[in-house]
Simulated scan of single mutants.
Amino acid sequence: MEKFKKEIPFIAVALLPFVYLAYIWKSLPESVPMHWNGAGEIDRYGDKNELLLMIFMLTGISYFIFLIIPYIDPKQKLQNMGNKLNNLRLILALFMSALAIYILYSVQQKTSNPVLIFPLVGLLFAFLGNYFKTIKPNYFIGIKTPWTLENEDVWKKTHVMGGKLWFVGGLLMAMTFVLPNKIQVYTFLGITAVITIVPIVYSYFEFKKIKNQ
């Protein structure tokens, strides 16, 4: 019972988009926008029932994943993170719910161009980058390469460097809302590639450096 009480805030946050969808359901036509192209134009419509699946994939699946992984982590490091892990879970749940609600709002408006999706993701990346240095070595969360998982010092150094990179990259993403749609998309993809590839390469060279010493 105590464990269930602790889960109530996470469940409540995950259900917020479903509540919002129920509120706007009758105002939605049977066919609603489901995808926008790089220019911000609607290029696919679908049945409004698809929105239920979209919300579940954003909030439901992420909730269940973070509920389960601390118990299947072979190193048991995630359980030792305590409140830090719960804070991370809550922030991610809030982000997923906010993203789902914003998408639903864009769907309802039809002509609304969801330009804030990339900046929202950028703010999430910035938050995660600021959080990286607190993550213990594990197989589920963080920059998981063969070299960070092999050596704890490489894990720490990679997450300190990668955290700074993700923080700066996330803030740059957040500022892309002032750019034209196509440039916004390409800028987002470029920044994502940099903050993904650089920490991987860095972890390899750090591992080689430590091994040679």
Results as ranks from 00 to 15, higher is better:
170 G>N: 08
37 N>S: 06
107 V>H: 10
156 K>C: 03
77 K>L: 03
89 R>F: 01
178 V>C: 04
49 N>G: 12
69 I>H: 14
61 I>T: 09
91 I>M: 04
80 N>V: 01
142 G>K: 02
28 L>D: 12
167 F>R: 09
90 L>S: 05
111 T>Y: 15
213 Q>V: 02
164 K>N: 14
18 F>C: 04
133 K>D: 12
137 P>R: 06
191 I>N: 11
128 L>F: 05
156 K>D: 12
34 M>P: 08
213 Q>I: 04
35 H>L: 02
123 L>I: 04
113 N>F: 09
27 S>N: 14
104 L>G: 15
171 L>M: 12
107 V>P: 13
8 I>Q: 03
5 K>Y: 15
67 L>P: 03
122 G>Q: 11
210 I>W: 01
153 D>G: 06
126 A>D: 11
178 V>L: 14
47 D>S: 13
166 W>H: 05
30 E>M: 04
103 I>P: 07
180 P>D: 15
4 F>P: 03
22 A>S: 13
21 L>Q: 04
18 F>D: 07
46 G>S: 09
209 K>T: 00
64 F>K: 00
78 L>G: 04
155 W>Q: 14
46 G>H: 07
94 L>A: 12
159 H>L: 05
135 I>W: 06
164 K>Y: 04
7 E>G: 01
3 K>P: 02
152 E>W: 04
115 V>S: 14
9 P>V: 02
126 A>W: 01
168 V>E: 07
11 I>A: 12
116 L>K: 08
144 K>F: 14
131 Y>W: 11
113 N>Y: 11
166 W>V: 05
116 L>Y: 15
64 F>A: 03
34 M>Y: 13
63 Y>W: 14
201 V>M: 13
178 V>S: 09
209 K>V: 00
105 Y>I: 08
210 I>T: 05
13 V>M: 08
200 I>L: 06
162 G>E: 09
39 A>E: 14
75 K>N: 14
141 I>H: 02
159 H>R: 07
28 L>C: 08
208 K>C: 07
151 N>M: 10
69 I>M: 06
197 I>Y: 11
58 L>E: 06
169 G>H: 03
105 Y>H: 13
77 K>F: 10
207 F>G: 03
161 M>H: 11
57 M>E: 14
137 P>Q: 11
101 I>A: 06
122 G>W: 13
53 L>Y: 15
123 L>T: 01
102 Y>K: 14
141 I>W: 00
139 Y>N: 15
8 I>Y: 02
203 S>N: 09
26 K>Y: 00
149 L>R: 08
190 G>M: 08
48 K>G: 11
200 I>N: 05
91 I>F: 04
45 Y>N: 07
208 K>P: 07
76 Q>N: 12
18 F>N: 05
97 S>P: 06
105 Y>S: 15
101 I>N: 05
152 E>G: 02
182 K>W: 13
82 G>H: 06
157 K>D: 12
100 A>Q: 10
43 D>V: 07
47 D>T: 11
31 S>P: 00
134 T>L: 13
29 P>Y: 12
11 I>G: 07
137 P>A: 03
114 P>N: 09
39 A>Y: 13
158 T>Y: 09
37 N>P: 07
131 Y>L: 08
148 T>G: 02
76 Q>H: 06
78 L>N: 04
123 L>A: 10
18 F>T: 10
141 I>M: 04
7 E>L: 10
149 L>Y: 15
111 T>F: 15
33 P>G: 10
115 V>T: 13
60 G>T: 05
152 E>F: 00
77 K>V: 00
